[in-house]
Design a protein around this nucleic acid. Structure first.
Length: 138
DNA sequence: TTTCTTACA
DNA sequence: TGTAAGAA
């Protein structure tokens, strides 16, 4: 078994994850409702989180502190898992004339950097609304 | 005891 | 987001 499998293995109950992330059960469930995380379930319908899920919750927590809302965070995290390959394939499939200057992946990387930077000054400039628009209108 | 869903001050 | 209620 490799690391990739290990990280995605459903292992922790919500109680453990609460301690690990310092998030309330309410918050964790709410983030799931908004498709930011997709923990597995036991036969008894109990949530089971993987290392990846925990890391993701930690990232979500960080972005929240930086002033982003769930919609914005979702845009930034959506391609970081299974979708990343798809996105790259899709971009490769495009005829080079129609390729945008920046790939989705690069765009998100830049955005992450901007947010981190804005955070140094005072997270007042780059806000959620702008972030969402940035993606929708690109 | 812990977690789940649903609903609401 | 917190919290309550009833079920699992």
């Amino acid at each position: 078994m490799n690391d990739k499998d290990r990280r995605s293995m459903p292992l922790f109950g919500i109680g453990i994850v609460m301690k690990l992330t310092e998030l309330t059960a309410r918050q964790i469930r709410y983030y799931e409702e908004n498709d930011l995380i997709h923990p597995e379930r036991t036969k008894g319908n109990q949530r089971l989180f993987s290392f990846n899920d925990v890391d993701r919750l930690l990232e979500i927590k960080n972005y929240l502190d930086k002033g982003l809302n769930l919609a914005g965070i979702k845009l930034l995290l959506t391609d970081e898992d299974s979708n990343v390959e798809k996105t790259e394939e899709k971009e490769k499939a495009l005829p080079k004339e129609k390729k945008s200057v920046l790939t989705d992946k690069e765009l998100r990387a830049i955005l992450r950097q901007e947010i981190t930077e804005a955070n140094r000054f005072g997270k007042a400039n780059l806000r959620q609304g702008e972030l969402a628009r940035f993606f929708v209108n690109r």
